[in-house]
Design a binder for these strands. Structure first.
Lengths: 343, 343
DNA sequence: CTGTTAGCGCGTTCAC
DNA sequence: GTGAACGCGCTAACAG
């Protein structure tokens, strides 16, 4: 339908249409085409229409690589999450992605699999791509990561925790306080011998530390710590509950590192006719859908996974927009204990 | 510690270290530095060591933007998924991301929210970034998307379904056949009045079509179609089950569009003391963790979410590696009915 | 409102 | 084994 512009042979991967091509056909210079795209107001309506028409007709797509190289702005934000397989991080990524997309930015995603070294490699690669900003999960990073980030001088938001010494910006909540709050709550409810079920990621460790501190404050024994096996959360929760039931009969409440693991434990109790919370109380973390739907519904810690991502993106773009003065650099999104039937 | 290379003032965002800088300090030309990075074998060991040492010391990170511009290869692959909030797509993204990362590629991620128009915009942006390859979800795309992709001439893998006319490559399974297979299975089990619970995404529609065809073949009535409300899957499943139980008392089996919705239905039955499968049989889709853990465990359709992503990435990199001859262009990953207690 | 001149940092091609 | 020249496609600064 559209007649071919050049008469060149169809051999080879037909060089992409360039600004020059559009400019030539539209009878203007390439910089005018550039303006039509980047600041349409600065171009006379007539010229603009003509150029726009030509762009559409030729299917011209600006080369953002070249643009980024010249302008030193890529409109790409990179994020490192431990894994996108956990819905809490998936939610965070979703929040970020939505905000970024709505503002003309794109998301480059990396998974660290909870390894700080992989994170370092990812950060290096992202810096190489000259991303405009970077979002990290957690506040614990290798010296190499910090070093790279410092010299690169790009805005960074650390998420999912707080620290007195952030690399740059911060969007999260205190995992330590969350653990302590759940400890206080469980003690208030009358539970005295408490277990913590979770892995050894830094944020889980922080919550355990908070829990321990709370118990200590109440002059109770330190929590029993159970490590859930990796792999399926539901199954890990089941297994942890078996361990609890068979090897720690004195435990009267267990705080799980996330709602899915807790749900697995609930399912195991259901199977064994163990009553919740009479025989053992169960508390989860994150306030996922499953927490309110399972029977009994889970007492848990609500955290704003989606908002963390959205906030991180917003802080980044605010900084990039140059509003350093206004933009806050730390955003404590908080948490809250959600009381339901399980504890 | 490391003495400063240049004596320039510390004002401004200290221009990033460049290949030239490294070359100067190492006493070679920038092309040698380039070789040390891209093809170390072509450089004398002594020079190589010296350059590598200098790279490490100066914290030099190659500008991949410039490299991509010059070489026309970015080592970035982009993917469009409906949403990363559904674990099936999160798994696919995880599989892709892992494979890509292991091979030195990076993943640019976009969410279409099931909108073909958003997909088109994303594809355009990705092409502008000159990604080396593109992974799409599904086989249904706007003419604009197809057009852009054709003229850009970059490798594309469509996933999560099959079609006789792919844009380029294909990694998925037949949703139609999967629906039909589940239909056959349910009929074999003696169910006669069957409902389908799901949304209206193209793949769900294909499964419904398959189911309908199967029922027709068995001379049974067309399936009752229930649309699960969006938002929480578990709750959507509960509500769908309420509808089924209260308004369609003749239904003896329901095929849900995914295991989480099906699990919600199971939870509702549990609450109402409705027996599964005696009072109503339930079948899910995807074979997620929850399918095997819930009580009763779900009969479902197993699909390889993770492998779809991995396969898509592999096909793309194979093509990029130039092995077009060998590389297969269509990968039917199949599905299988997993029989458990619920149907 | 429009055009000209210079790079952005790198890879490619060819020489040496 | 190493280097020089050139251009990738675009934006920034200034000019007109």
């Amino acid at each position: 339908m559209a007649k071919r512009i050049t008469s060149q042979e169809d051999s080879g991967p037909a060089r992409a249409v360039t600004k020059e091509d559009v400019a030539r056909v539209a009878g203007v210079s390439h910089i005018t085409v550039s303006r039509v795209i980047n600041s349409p107001d600065k171009v006379a309506p007539a010229t603009r229409e003509k150029v726009l028409a030509e762009i559409a007709r030729m299917g011209y797509i600006p080369n953002l690589l070249a643009g980024g190289l010249a302008s030193r702005r890529t409109r790409i934000v990179a994020a490192v999450v431990p894994t996108i397989g956990h819905s809490i991080f998936a939610e965070t990524v979703r929040g970020m992605s939505e905000y970024l997309m709505a503002h003309g930015y794109q998301l480059l995603l990396g998974q660290s699999d909870y390894s700080e070294d992989i994170e370092t490699r990812l950060v290096e690669a992202f810096i190489g791509r000259r991303v405009d900003g970077l979002v990290l999960t957690g506040v614990q990073h290798t010296p190499a990561t910090r070093q790279r980030l410092r010299t690169a001088g790009i805005p960074v938001v650390e998420t999912w925790d707080l620290t007195p010494e952030p690399i740059d910006m911060l969007a999260g909540f205190s995992n330590y306080d969350a653990g302590a709050a759940m400890g206080d709550y469980l003690v208030e409810q009358g539970y005295r011998r408490i277990a913590f079920v979770g892995g050894d990621d830094p944020r889980g460790v922080a919550r355990l530390a908070g829990l321990s501190a709370a118990l200590k404050r109440h002059r109770l024994r330190a929590p029993v710590r159970i490590t859930a096996s990796p792999g399926s959360f539901l199954q890990g929760g089941r297994e942890a509950m078996v361990t609890l039931l068979e090897q720690h009969r004195d435990i009267d409440a267990a705080f799980f590192s996330n709602d899915v693991i807790a749900a697995g434990a609930v399912l195991e109790c259901d199977r064994r006719k163990v009553r919740i919370p009479q025989d053992i109380a169960i508390a989860g973390f994150a306030n996922l859908d499953i927490a309110s739907e399972i029977n009994p519904p889970l007492t848990t810690v609500h955290v704003s996974s989606h908002r963390i991502g959205e906030t991180a993106a917003r802080m980044l773009l605010a900084r990039l927009g140059g509003k350093d003065a206004e933009a806050d650099t730390v955003s404590d999104l908080g948490f809250s204990i959600v009381r339901r039937g399980s504890a």
